[in-house]
Design a protein around this nucleic acid. Structure first.
Length: 427
RNA sequence: GGAGGGGUGGGUGAGUGGCUUAAACUAACAGUUUGCUAAACUGUCGUACGGGUUAAACUGUACCGGGGGUUCGAAUCCCCCCCCCUCCGCCA
């Protein structure tokens, strides 16, 4: 959520930013925000002034009673009672203005950073960097959804039986590969100085609002009605919310956390022709890195985080490209996002495996995540996060790119974790 | 799930309807003094939204777990909810 005073004071800049996102109706929305804010302030002034008056009068009543001047008390009492009625009605409209203002603010996405190109969708993203050469596979190379059957490592039918479509069962060397990847990613992050956390995989409503999944993505999260809990779509939600309502000590900055969790996404209505096998799931594993930074450091941190994610892909020997997302393709909360896409040789498609974003104060504003600077001023912090990494598409790319007639070659960096070099029929 | 006890500022903790402007202690910060593994003294010391100001000063309101109610007036009384502790039940 954008800060109201930022909108008030930098209206031109906000509008220009939203235009880069191709965000419709920005001008009307912003005007309505400013107008509602003004009404809110006027109403608060009226309510506050009347409250001040009735507070003084109430005190006077106490003094009169003490002095035994009970005769004058009744008039004053009815005066205060009448004022209270008016206060009540001012407060009702105040609550209404506040509610409306919040509702409007929830509709406004983050303002893209200076560097973010304008654009409507994926076709306008800017390729920043490419690594590795595309694998040259034999013409009979198989896509991963065939390979997983051939080597009996991931079973969609079994998952379908016990849960439903999009909930695969990992078996044999497939299960071991999952565990290897998770441990590899966690160990690498630890080496980089990220503090490991293992958060709950359900969160309450307040946490959903804190990081901006609510109200924007209400229908995309699984919801447990009995206990009013959401299954997390990403570890970003619980980990970032650890710092909700926190006034961070300056000496505790920067905050750097890593966590592994399963992630749950309903993906309602987003299943298409090219979404097969591991390309899109309802449940998947991901290791997430989160940083909380001072404003002046956050863009340098974004570069550092994306460079770290790139280093993981390079160690796994996967060809990838790094995209700077255009305004129209960025997530609602983000000010700037890099996507990493690996090339899956048999599908001959790029698959998104990581998204690294700087949210600036957009989340921190909702989270009330702040610190006091040297001048004693309270400042919102910047939040950043990135996948490091999401497993299924990494697995898909490894399977497809590393297939040989003897089986699938495990990237050498993972062998200490898997303790096998080839995925073949043997267990 | 049942019974009982709790939730007050960064921490400890007083406060049963108006003398509370939330005491006191403590931590932190600044200064003074002594002079050196430190102490004493003085001062400052919450958050949010407003008014005001070039900026400050100054100033209004709200906040004692959350929400509602009673009252001229609520940290204090009433109702609902949440969380913590103890015991019981269930349980990996």
């Amino acid at each position: 959520m954008l800060q109201i005073n930022v909108i008030r004071e930098n209206m031109e800049k906000v509008l220009a930013g939203l235009k880069k996102r191709n965000f419709k109706d920005a001008e009307n929305l912003i005007n309505e925000v400013v107008e509602t804010d003004k009404l809110r302030k006027d109403t608060q002034k009226k309510a506050d002034d009347l409250k001040a008056k009735s507070n003084t009068d109430s005190k006077k009543i106490g003094e009169l009673i003490k002095a035994g001047k009970t005769g004058e008390v009744n008039d004053l009492k009815s005066q205060v009672a009448a004022d209270r009625q008016n206060i009540k009605s001012w407060e009702e409209s105040l609550v209404e203005y506040e509610r409306k203002l919040e509702e409007l603010l929830y509709k406004i996405p983050n303002v893209p950073a200076e560097k973010v190109p304008a654009g409507k969708g994926a076709e306008d993203n800017f390729t920043v960097y490419e690594y590795g050469s595309l694998p040259s596979l034999p013409t009979d190379a198989q896509p991963h959804w065939e390979l997983i059957k051939k080597y009996d490592i991931i079973d969609f039918d079994l998952g379908n039986k016990i849960a439903g479509a999009g909930f695969p069962v990992y078996k044999n060397k497939g299960a071991k590969l999952q565990r290897a990847l998770i441990n590899f990613f966690l160990d690498e992050a630890s080496k980089q100085g990220y503090a490991e956390v293992q958060p709950p995989i359900v969160v309450n409503k307040a946490s959903g609002y804190g990081t901006g999944q609510l109200p924007d993505k209400e229908g995309q999260m699984y919801f447990i009605t009995e206990d009013e809990l959401y299954l997390i779509p990403t570890a970003e939600v619980p980990i970032t919310n650890l710092y909700r309502d926190v006034m961070v000590n300056e000496q505790d900055l920067p905050i750097r956390n890593v966590g592994y969790t399963p992630c749950f996404r309903r993906e309602a209505g987003s299943w298409g022709a090219h979404v097969r096998g591991l390309n899109r799931l309802h449940q998947f594993d991901k290791v997430e890195i989160v940083q909380i930074r001072k404003a002046e450091e956050s863009y340098q941190t974004l570069e550092e985080m994306s460079a770290y994610v790139q280093s993981l892909l390079e160690k796994l020997e996967l060809p990838y490209r790094k995209l700077l997302l255009c305004g129209g393709d960025m997530g609602f909360n983000s000010a700037m996002t890099y996507d990493m896409e690996v090339y899956a040789g048999a599908q001959q498609r790029w698959l998104e495996v990581s998204s690294v974003s700087n949210f600036e104060t957009f989340q921190a504003n909702r989270l009330k995540l702040r610190y006091k600077n040297r001048d004693g001023k309270t400042q919102l912090l910047h939040t950043l996060n990135g996948s490091a990494l999401a497993l299924p598409r990494i697995v898909a790319a490894i399977l497809e790119n590393n297939q040989t007639k003897d089986g699938i070659k495990v990237p050498s960096v993972l062998v200490p974790y898997t303790r096998f070099e080839m995925i073949d029929g043997n267990s």
